[in-house]
Simulated assay, not measured.
Amino acid sequence: MNIVFIVLGVLFFLIILSGFVTVKQGYVAIITVFGKYRRVIEPGLSFRIPFIETVYKRISIQNRSVEIEFQAVTQDQANVYFKAMMLYAVINQSESTIKNVAFKFVDESSFMQALIRTIEGTIRSFVATKKQAEILSLRTEIIEEVKMHLDATLEEWGYHMIDIQLNDIMFDEEIIKSMAKVVASNNLKAAAENEGQALLITKTKAAEAEGNAIKISAIAEKEAAIQRGQGIALFREEVAKGMAQAAREMSEAQLDSSYLMFSLWTESIKHFAEHGKGNVIFLDGSTDGMHKTLNQMMAVSKLQETK
């Protein structure tokens, strides 16, 4: 009899012991009663009614990621190959959210299949409206399109999308080569245009500099001519004054003014001889020629005196 009680006691202890459930941090457990949802067990040690309450599923509330690779076709029939990574998690630990996560899909593989196909379908629909030349510049727009269509769907399933990245966008080899040729030709065209602009600017600046130099030279030459003319005029004026003064002094001294003219004549000949540098100067050295020259110089002197 004692053995029976001992056996019953051991069985009762084992039954009670089997009712304890441990849930790891980062998870919650779904409890059902005869297949019907009953409650959610938080992380830690909990108790369930043995044989009545059953742990239906343990759900991770941590961040999860999925990588996908797929192909899309552009509007101009170019194949585009995408590699994407999505980061997602359970929205929160509320009872309604946990129930959606636990019972919306039969199993985890069904959920993953629906998630991947939804992302692929959204991107393919977007890419089908664009040309292959636009795709590489529309990375941000593609991500925004996926978020816009996927956020509401994921919320119905009890999840939310944290981030999605398009890690790689590739084309067929022939398209890549043709795109490289287009880029190279555009670079050559831009380089030629830049070189032409630089040459035009160089020639324009050179022409402006030459024009400014000619203008400055002309102004300087004009100023020099004016200065030379003024110098010659002043020289002649001073010579005339000196000759008039000398003529008056000789007249007051009762000397013949032709002596002054003869002196200037001889000084001029002396100057020609000293500074002529081999040049040939023809002068009328006859008596009549000298007399004629002296008369002309005396006439100039008298004209200055009248002034």
Rank of each mutant, 00 (worst) to 15 (best):
R117G: 08
T118P: 02
G121Y: 12
G121M: 13
G121A: 14
T122D: 07
I123M: 14
I123F: 12
I123R: 08
S125K: 14
F126A: 11
V127P: 10
V127W: 08
A128L: 11
T129Q: 14
T129W: 07
T129D: 10
K130W: 09
K130V: 11
K131H: 12
K131Q: 12
K131C: 06
K131F: 15
Q132Y: 14
Q132R: 06
Q132M: 07
E134R: 12
I135N: 04
I135Y: 08
L136C: 00
S137P: 04
S137C: 04
S137G: 09
L138Y: 05
L138N: 01
L138H: 02
R139E: 11
T140M: 07
T140W: 05
E141K: 10
I142L: 14
E144L: 15
E145D: 14
E145M: 09
V146P: 06
K147I: 06
H149L: 15
H149M: 10
H149Q: 15
H149R: 11
L150T: 13
L150I: 15
L150N: 04
L150V: 11
D151R: 14
A152V: 06
A152D: 10
L154G: 00
E155S: 05
E156Q: 12
E156I: 02
W157V: 04
W157S: 03
G158F: 03
G158P: 05
G158K: 05
Y159N: 03
H160S: 08
I162H: 05
I162Q: 10
I162N: 13
I162M: 03
D163P: 00
D163Y: 00
D163H: 02
I164Q: 01
N167I: 06
N167D: 11
D168P: 01
I169K: 00
M170N: 13
F171S: 01
F171Q: 03
D172I: 02
D172Y: 03
D172R: 05
E173P: 04
E174A: 14
E174F: 05
I175L: 04
I176P: 00
I176C: 00
I176W: 04
K177W: 02
S178F: 01
M179Q: 12
M179P: 01
V183D: 05
